[in-house]
Design a binder for these strands. Structure first.
Lengths: 240, 240
DNA sequence: ATGGTTCATTGGTTCGACCAATTTGTCAAC
DNA sequence: GTTGACAAATTGGTCGAACCAATGAACCAT
C-alpha cells in the first residue's frame, strides 16, 4: 500500500543533473571548456564545494576531462559514456519514433546479453535452479499487484538467472542495462503491460534451465524474448 | 617514441580506489556501515571534503547507499555495480584460472554485443563504411608499432563500427565493455599479441559490411571473433 | 626562433563552522 | 508494557574563506 518516500534531491545531484543534461542535449560542444568552478558555482547559486561534487561525478563517469590549471573540458559521451546515460537521453527524445528506436536498440542489447547468459548456462554441467524458481514463484505472487511490485519481482528473477551463471562478469555487465530499462518510466509501463505474459516466458526459461540446456534450444528461448520485445516496441510506437 | 605522462593520482581518486578495493575484496560486508566521514577522513589522513569526493564517486556508481543522519552503507556490487569494476576485480583474482574465467566471460559479452551490432547493421539498408575503412587503414599503418598505438587504433575501429549503426544505444552499451578490456594490461597484451591477425579479422568484417550484410552470414563473422577470443583465453591460461 | 621568467587563471586541498536528517535515549502519560 | 513527546548525540549536507599546485599566456633576454 505505502511505499518509501524518495529522499529529496541534494544540491550536488541537482547540479550534476543540470550539467549532464546540457552535455547530452549537445548544448556544450565536445572539447568545450566549462566556466571556471568559481564562476559556475556562482551561476548555480551554490558553494564551490557543492559544485565540485557534481563535477566529480561527471568526471568519474567519463563525461568531463579535468586537469588542474586548465579547467573542465567536455568529452564525447558517445565514446566515453555508459548505458546509464540512456534514461536522460530518452527524455530528450522528442518524437515517439525516436523513443521507439531507443527502446528497440536497448532491448536488442538486453536480448543478446541474455543469449550470452544462456550460452554460459549451457556450458555449465550443473546449475542451481532453486533461486530462480523461488524468484519466479515470487513473481507469480505479485502478478496482479501494482507495477512497482511487478518490476521489483522481475528484477529479482533477472538477477537470479544471472547469478545462476556463477559469473560476476555477466552480472556486472547486465546491471547497467537493467537499471537503464527500469529508470525509463514509460518503458517500464510498456514492458509490464501484461505481467502474466512475462510469467509464461520465465516459466519457459526455467523449464529450459532444469532440462538438458542444449545449445540448439537457445535460439528458441531467445526467439521468445524477441517476440516479447517486439510487442513492447510496438506499444511504444502506439503511445504517440 | 615518447608518450604523454599520466597525471598524478589525486587524493580523492586514491581514497576512492582504496574504498572500492575494500568493497570488491569483500572486506566490507553488504549492509555494513562505513565509519563516519569525520573519522574516515582522519583515518585516511585527508580532509573531510576530500574524502567526500571519494564517497560521492562510489555513491554515484551505486556501491554505497548514503543518507543524511544514518551514514554510508555498503551495497551489493554484484547487483549494483557495472563492468567498470572488472579491472579492479581482476586484480584481486589470485590464480591464473580465475583470470582466465574473467577473460572468457568478458570476451563472451563483447562478442555477443558485436553480434547485436552486426544484426543492427544487417537491418539497415544503407551503411556508411567509409569511417570504418579509414580506421582499419590506420590500424594497418601501426600494426608494427608499439602495443599502445595498436590498442588505440583498434579502439578507433571498434568505435567506427559501432558508430556505423547510427545507434547511440549500441555505442553507449559497448563503451564500458571496451574500456574494461583495455584497462586490464595483461589482457591487452594477450589480445594484441599478433596485430596482423586482428587486421585480417577487421578486413573480413569490412568486406561483410560492404557486401549484402545478410543475417545468415553473421554467424560466420561471429565465429571468427569466437576463435580469436578462444586463442586469447588460451594465452591467458598459459601465462600462469 | 629559442629558452627562461613572470603572472593571471584554474583546479586541488584544507580548515572551521553551521544546517538538517536520523537515530537513540529519556521520561511522562496512559 | 505501550505509547507518544521531547532532547541529545550522531551523521551527512552545505557553506565561506584561505592557500597550494599545475597550466598557459605574455613578456623578455639571448
Amino acid at each position: 500500500m505505502f511505499q518509501p518516500i524518495a529522499p529529496r534531491e541534494s544540491a550536488v545531484d541537482a547540479c550534476a543533473a543540470a550539467l549532464r543534461r546540457a552535455i547530452l542535449a549537445g548544448e556544450l560542444e565536445v572539447g568545450d571548456r566549462l566556466p571556471a568552478e568559481r564562476r559556475l558555482a556562482e551561476a548555480f547559486g551554490v558553494n564551490r564545494m557543492t559544485l565540485r561534487g557534481a563535477l566529480g561525478q561527471l568526471a568519474a563517469a567519463g563525461l568531463l576531462d579535468v586537469r588542474q590549471g586548465r579547467g573542465h573540458a567536455v568529452r564525447d559521451f558517445r565514446h566515453e559514456g555508459g548505458p546509464d546515460l540512456l534514461p536522460g537521453l530518452s527524455e530528450l527524445a522528442a518524437t515517439p519514433s525516436e523513443r521507439a528506436a531507443i527502446v528497440d536498440d536497448l532491448l536488442r542489447v538486453r536480448r543478446h546479453l541474455a543469449r550470452a547468459v544462456l550460452e554460459k548456462l549451457a556450458e555449465r554441467s550443473r546449475v542451481d535452479c532453486a533461486p530462480v524458481r523461488r524468484a519466479i514463484d515470487a513473481f507469480a505472487e505479485v502478478v496482479d499487484a501494482d507495477s512497482a511490485a511487478v518490476g521489483e519481482a522481475d528484477l529479482a528473477v533477472v538477477r537470479a538467472v544471472a547469478g545462476a551463471t556463477g559469473s560476476a562478469v555477466l552480472q556486472l555487465c547486465s546491471n547497467p542495462i537493467e537499471r537503464a530499462v527500469r529508470e525509463m518510466p514509460w518503458l517500464r509501463a510498456v514492458i509490464y503491460a501484461s505481467p502474466e505474459h512475462n510469467l509464461v516466458g520465465w516459466r519457459a526459461l526455467l523449464a529450459w534451465m532444469e532440462g538438458e540446456r542444449s545449445m540448439e534450444s537457445i535460439d528458441r528461448i531467445v526467439g521468445l524474448l524477441a517476440s516479447r520485445d517486439e510487442a513492447a516496441v510496438a506499444r511504444v510506437g502506439e503511445m504517440a
